[in-house]
Nucleic acid binder design. Structure first.
Lengths: 157, 157
DNA sequence: ACATTTTATTTTAGAAGTAAAATATATCCG
DNA sequence: CGGATATATTTTACTTCTAAAATAAAATGT
């Protein structure tokens, strides 16, 4: 109970405190980005995230790879991509060698749309974070990286 | 274009990099908490957040105060609280002095439910963060706090 | 008093998300 | 080969969430 040793974050109170301190600003930024994407491009943050993941994968992604990268369920990706196909942002083609799988790829329109949005996204973040001291930017980033690698989630990756 | 001065986080590339480094681990933790609340208590993270906000406010909260604290829209809170009223976790009573407003308060059942969930929540976080060095916990927390205060969102607070 | 505006909330229509069951195809192993 | 199991995705039923319009009560100004 009153043990003096606590090298790590395993004090429940400290863990909750750290979590809330991270969660609040991240939620605020997320909310702000979401509403700006809606206002300026009439597009959801999820769509931007999907375009972003696809842009990094020149050969496209399977539905399952996409749901892994976006951290959402398969069922969610099914609907998200269906709507994006309708809007001409991506294509979704069956693989000949495995008829269960589908390869999703950006269309040219999707690439152009993404490029415009990515530019705005970067500017918005620079603006939102403009008051943060440069030193905090780098060290906060490094420690967030450490957090990612130390995380004990089921699917650590 | 090639200006040498960049004291702050206003280099778009740096800002995006920091954002992604924060967003990834926070999303992973959020996802993990969400699924554990579902598995163990058959309850959404949103409900836990709502109970948590109400617990901090002994005199209850107005619908609008709740949507401010939860960073979600009024319409969302309407539905969320309606379902929680049905399940007996909260009460929602009109104010006599302002008939537009409603005071939401935890019921005794809501308090008990919250207490059990809060305990599990703290344990889960301690477990998830167990590998994080204690020094990182405190300094990451402090810098996240700095981030919160420096944020240039519309509703800065 | 009374029209105007502001504030608090709900409603509406629909996107985004989940868990769990269903479907369909591949793979594995006797 | 054929049955069992594993994999990839969709479907289903539902909650969560948003933006925008609607409702209703309060506050304000002349």
């Amino acid at each position: 109970m009153a043990g003096p040793a606590r090298q790590q974050a395993n004090e429940p109170r400290d863990a909750v405190k750290l979590w809330l301190r991270l969660y609040r600003p991240v939620s605020l930024i997320e909310r702000e980005l979401r509403s700006r994407f809606q206002r300026e491009f009439a597009v959801s943050l999820s769509r931007f995230d999907a375009l972003s993941a696809l842009q990094r994968a020149p050969d496209g992604l399977l539905m399952g790879e996409l749901s892994d990268r976006l951290l959402v369920t398969n069922g969610n990706v099914t609907g998200l991509i269906s709507r994006m196909v309708v809007d001409g942002l991506v294509t979704r083609d069956a693989l000949p060698q495995d008829r269960r799988s589908f390869r999703v790829q950006l269309t040219e329109a999707g690439q152009e749309t993404f490029a415009r949005m990515a530019h705005a996204h970067a500017d918005w973040l620079a603006e939102l974070l403009a008051d943060l001291p440069g030193q905090t930017v780098s060290s906060l980033g490094e420690q967030a990286e450490t957090l990612l690698h130390c995380l004990r989630t089921e699917r650590t990756g």
